[in-house]
């Protein structure tokens, strides 16, 4: 079992490193003129510089070194928590991220919790419901939720709850009230996705022969669904948890922009707009780390929920 856990950790680290490398490659190798791109972000127009001035500027941002050299020094820095300096804001990226982390973490956690609860409740209810019209309505609901662009939902909410009813603040990060609309906006999408996967999973599970066995014992439908359906239906849905959390984090980019929340998402939007490469690299790597971490947790939890997996491991260990 220890070997299994260690193996998973190592695998997660490799994936994380690879994701970092891919992002680095995209940002440093894809542009036709990376120097102009990065200096442009600092407000320097490369065409107007003399060769000497250009060289000084390049040296200042470390752009005169070979790409491989830059890659390793960046990677070394990352391992030490040093993400380099923002080009447009002339500040260490780590500080920028530290300043902006709070609101995004609060938003992500609220939204993730909300979407888990809502998604599961919806799927559970939909598969328990026997009255066809209600059931049809519930099963169609997620399809709607996943179809509306988040910026549209956000604008609609602002229009309704802020401007028409005046219940909630349209922008800002102050107080719990400012969290309501952004988390609803995000979780509408993620809850819909979760519900879609879960509904399907429930559908498959409740069609399994062991459900017939359970019903033949004389158990009520509610008992059958709770005791025999729920856990088995949850298992396949667990695998998309990482994707859902990733989605929650990236949704923050759009949502924070609309609600003018000064979080990481807003920072990402500003960084891309300014083509501030080090900031973008740091934020993408951070998001990948969250994704890899959630998947790692799911991987480690899975054997606890599915006895078949544990057994498989034990066999490995004993042979």
């Amino acid at each position: 079992m220890t070997r299994y856990i260690l193996g998973r950790f190592a695998q997660a680290l490799v994936v994380l490193w690879a994701a970092y490398t891919v992002t680095f490659a995209v940002l440093y190798l894809l542009p036709s003129d990376p120097v102009a791109l990065q200096l442009g972000a600092a407000g320097i127009e490369t065409d107007k510089l003399t060769p000497e001035q250009l060289n000084t500027a390049m040296a200042q941002y470390g752009l005169d070194r070979p790409v491989l050299n830059q890659y390793f020094s960046h990677l070394w820095g990352f391992l030490h928590g040093d993400f380099g300096d923002s080009i447009s804001k002339q500040q260490p990226v780590a500080d920028l991220i530290g300043d902006r982390l709070g609101p995004t973490v609060a938003l992500s956690i609220t939204a993730a919790t909300l979407s888990l609860v809502a998604g599961m409740a919806l799927a559970y209810l939909a598969s328990y419901m026997r009255w066809r019209p209600a059931r049809l309505f519930l099963t169609r609901l997620p399809s709607f939720g996943a179809s509306f662009p988040q910026f549209f939902i956000a604008l609609l909410l602002i229009q309704l709850l802020s401007f028409n009813l005046g219940w909630l603040p349209a922008t800002g990060v102050k107080g719990w009230k400012s969290l309501v609309m952004p988390s609803i906006t995000i979780s509408l999408l993620t809850a819909s996705m979760l519900a879609q996967v879960l509904m399907r999973s429930f559908d498959d599970t409740l069609r399994q022969p062991y459900i017939v066995t359970a019903r033949a014992k004389g158990l009520s439908r509610a008992a059958v669904q709770w005791r025999h359906g729920f856990r088995n239906a949850l298992l396949p849905a667990l695998t998309i948890l990482g994707v859902l959390v990733g989605l929650t984090v990236t949704s923050a980019i759009v949502v924070e922009t609309v609600f003018s929340r000064n979080g990481l998402g807003k920072l990402a939007q500003e960084a891309v707009l300014a083509q501030d490469v080090p900031v973008v690299l740091a934020i993408v790597s951070l998001a990948a780390a969250v994704f890899v971490f959630v998947n790692l947790v799911v991987d480690l939890l899975y054997p606890l929920l599915d006895p078949r997996i544990v057994q498989g491991r034990r066999k490995v260990a004993s042979s």
């Binding site: 066995t213 014992k217 158990l219 088995n232 929920l305 599915d306 006895p307």
Partner: peptide, 30 residues
């Protein structure tokens, strides 16, 4: 009536039991 008047032995034993619950628990329910 199910279970207490009419019992069922289903077709395929490989899939007739809940894979994530212990045997004892599944018998105890009945």
């Amino acid at each position: 009536l199910r279970g207490r008047v009419v019992g069922l032995v289903p077709q395929d034993p490989m899939v007739g039991l809940n894979p994530t619950r212990r045997i004892g628990g599944q018998v105890a329910e009945a």
